[in-house]
Amino acid sequence: MINKQIKIDVRTVKKFFKKGKIRKIAEKTGFIKRKRKLDAFEFFISLTFGSLTTTTITLGAIAENLSECISRAGINDRFNQYAIDFLTEVFSFFFRTATENGHNINIDVLNQFGRVNIIDSSSWELPPGLKSAFPGYNIAGCKVQLMYDYKTGVIQLFDIKKQTCNDQSYSKTLGDQIT
């Protein structure tokens, strides 16, 4: 029952993510500067929807979802500021489009608030050589903190931290951003 619901939701969300639009965003943000083996659309789909089939997203799992053969090191090299800008812009576009097209949740009680911020994090393992920069739980690990304003469809915060960064402690550092 749950898997069926996830599949339906994924199909609904996927219709927002058109290949041409994703590729234009990749070019605009500098994630893709010229024709390469790595396709921006495949990279995005592998990171987002590829994670529904596994509990751990690894560089190898991302590589398996791509049509071109790219090494794990090659994929790892793509996780840089351009990738952050690319993913931020793709998700901002998605949330804006979903909100503008009435695909948001209509909860009248939210009308009394100027902002409705949703904060969440995701973490994953990194190559062992990055453990000094990104300490994880007995491994190297990275965590992304994301804050999304539901009412405006804008990503307010996209922050990369070490995997051991506690969510509750992190939320206390946000101060005025969450009020």
Rank of each mutant, 00 (worst) to 15 (best):
D85P: 03
T55S: 15
S46N: 07
T58G: 03
F91E: 03
N166I: 11
D39H: 13
F31Y: 09
T179Q: 09
N166W: 15
I155C: 01
K18F: 09
R115C: 01
R72S: 04
I139F: 08
G30V: 13
S121H: 06
E100N: 12
G50D: 11
I45L: 09
K19H: 08
I118N: 00
K7F: 13
R72K: 10
R96F: 07
R72V: 02
N138T: 08
I139Q: 09
D108P: 07
I62W: 04
T179F: 13
I118M: 03
G141L: 08
K7Y: 11
R23Q: 13
A40R: 05
T53K: 15
N3A: 14
I2Y: 09
Q163R: 12
R78S: 12
S67K: 15
L52A: 12
F44T: 07
K151R: 05
L38Y: 10
E64D: 13
V116I: 14
V116A: 10
A40I: 09
T12V: 12
H103R: 06
L110S: 02
L174C: 02
P127N: 08
S132M: 06
L66K: 02
L174G: 00
S171W: 10
L146R: 03
Q5N: 14
T152W: 01
M147P: 01
I22M: 04
L157H: 01
Y150H: 06
A61W: 10
I107G: 00
T48R: 05
A63G: 04
L87K: 02
E27M: 11
I178P: 00
Q163H: 11
T164A: 02
I32K: 08
Q5S: 14
G153C: 05
Q168V: 08
K4G: 02
I119C: 03
K37C: 03
G74P: 09
A40S: 13
R11D: 14
K162Y: 04
S121F: 11
Q168I: 12
Q81S: 07
K37Q: 10
I45K: 06
Q156A: 13
T54A: 07
K35R: 15
N101F: 11
K14R: 15
F134N: 00
K21G: 01
S169H: 07
Y137P: 00
N111P: 00
I25S: 00
I84Q: 01
T99V: 09
K19W: 04
I22C: 06
S51P: 05
T173E: 04
I32P: 00
I119V: 12
Y170G: 00
I6P: 01
I119M: 05
F86G: 01
I25G: 00
N80M: 06
I45D: 12
F41W: 06
I155M: 04
T97S: 12
E27L: 15
T173I: 04
I25W: 01
V109H: 05
G141D: 05
A140K: 04
I62D: 02
N106M: 12
K151F: 02
L110F: 14
I70C: 03
F79R: 04
D39N: 12
E125H: 08
T54S: 09
T53D: 15
T54V: 13
G114Y: 11
T173W: 03
T12A: 08
R23N: 11
E68K: 13
F94C: 07
F41C: 04
S51C: 14
F16P: 01
L146V: 15
F16V: 03
K151M: 05
K172T: 08
Q81M: 07
V90Y: 03
D120P: 01
Q163K: 10
